[in-house]
Nucleic acid binder design. Structure first.
Length: 393
DNA sequence: ATAGATGATTGAAC
DNA sequence: GTTCAATCATCTAT
């Protein structure tokens, strides 16, 4: 704490020899010495002169931004602050991302256990440092009080000294916080890495996703709402749905032949439902179409009868289909039915599907033809002339 | 043990 | 922001 001496300033030259001299007297002898009051007053006088420099040297320490950052992080990670039953938000998010299955809960509890360990170490250390700080402060204060009998020490100076001690200890605390943060970061990165230890989606989930994919083959870009619904149905996250569709589109496109069987399977699976739904939609349209405001207007899709419906579908094979004009539900049913038709229409062999079914709506650029814009915004879910077979059902 | 399947990540393009 | 394409890392069926 040499800074105290530094702060003494101009009086230092005189004060040091005096202090030095004092040390040669026994304490009680000094206290009883007849010269003591005089000496003390001299010291006080000198001190008074240097007081200004002390006051001037008192700096306001602003809240350290780095410390604040560390504090915030520790709070966010659940290391500091109130004890939380379930780990940090990050852990919860990661748990959700990996499907939140029972298998994952093992990893999750592992993470929680490690975090608790860090938390305990942090708190023990923090307490230790605080205790040491308090002990040291009392010790120094006692010393100063003791010395104040032989030399003038103002309460302000003691306060300042305490401040210095606290600053020193808080810098140690900062190091503790820093290393705790590092430990949490390492733990978290390990945990997040563990996310790569993926689990395959459940059969049901894959089924649901495939059903959607193959029944929206002309435009397999689910809207945000559709993604959310699929995510809910499959108990996975929306981003997992997006990943799945991203992977599926690219893999399907890369090797359509390989997916032929799967496509057939899902097409057959939904064909009956689709047929019913389309029939209902057609019926609905037949009854409504002459008066419906949408009929005949530009961009709307007219379904006067089932014959037209199938003609329309046949024209799809010639790539002249304007899918974006069709409502989503009918569109998906068209996809399914078209598949069935193509199948029964026959392609020479399994791989030959490329020429009939596989082009679907894939254009020369490798994109889906109907996907005027491959974005959730332009998903044809609610086209102007859309026929809601769901509601009509 | 291995190949193929599959979910996640990354970087570029838009 | 989304999507594509390539790639990584793991799972799974053999």
């Amino acid at each position: 704490f040499g800074s105290e001496r530094d702060a003494i300033g101009p009086g230092r030259v005189m004060l040091i020899p005096l202090c030095f001299a004092i040390c040669f007297f026994r304490k009680h002898a000094l206290n009883c010495h007849r010269m003591k009051p005089a000496l003390f007053s001299v010291l006080c006088e000198i001190k008074e002169k240097t007081g200004l420099s002390i006051r001037g040297a008192q700096e306001e320490d602003p809240p350290d931004p780095q410390l604040m950052r560390l504090d915030n992080m520790l709070l966010a990670e659940g290391v500091s602050g109130p004890e939380k039953g379930g780990g940090s938000a990050a852990a919860a998010a990661a748990a959700a991302a990996s499907g939140g299955s029972s298998d994952n809960s093992i990893e999750h509890s592992d993470y929680r256990a490690k975090l608790t360990q860090i938390r305990q170490i942090y708190h023990t250390e923090l307490e230790k440092y605080e205790q040491a700080c308090n002990e040291f402060t009392t010790h120094v204060m006692n010393l100063l009080r003791e010395q104040s009998r032989t030399r003038p020490i103002s309460p302000k100076e003691i306060e300042r000294m305490v401040g210095i001690i606290h600053r020193k200890f808080s810098s140690i605390q900062m190091q503790l916080k820093q290393s705790t943060c590092e430990a949490v970061m390492i733990l978290r990165s390990r945990f997040l890495d563990a996310r790569r230890k993926r689990r395959n989606f459940s059969k049901q989930a894959t089924e649901i996703l495939n059903e959607y994919f193959y029944s929206h083959l002309s435009n397999p870009y689910p809207s945000e709402e559709a993604k959310e619904e699929l995510a809910k149905k499959c108990s996975i996250t929306v981003s997992q749905v997006s990943n799945w569709f991203g992977n599926k589109r690219i893999r399907y496109k890369k090797n359509i032949g390989k997916f032929q069987e799967e496509a057939n399977l899902y097409a057959a699976k939904t064909a009956v439902t689709a047929a019913h739904a389309v029939a209902a939609a057609v019926q609905n349209n037949q009854t409504n179409s002459p008066t419906t405001p949408n009929s005949g207007s530009s961009g709307s899709f007219n379904l006067p009868n089932s014959g037209d419906m199938f003609m329309n579908m046949q024209s799809l094979n010639g790539d002249s289909y304007q899918g974006s004009q069709v409502g989503a539900n009918v569109q998906s049913q068209v996809d399914t039915l078209r598949h069935v038709i193509n199948q029964t229409g026959g392609y020479s062999d399994g791989l030959g599907g490329n020429s009939l079914y596989s082009p679907h709506n894939l254009n020369a650029n490798g994109g889906w033809q109907d996907a005027t814009t491959p974005s959730s915004v332009t998903s044809p879910t609610e086209g102007p002339g859309s026929v809601h077979s769901d509601t009509s059902n």
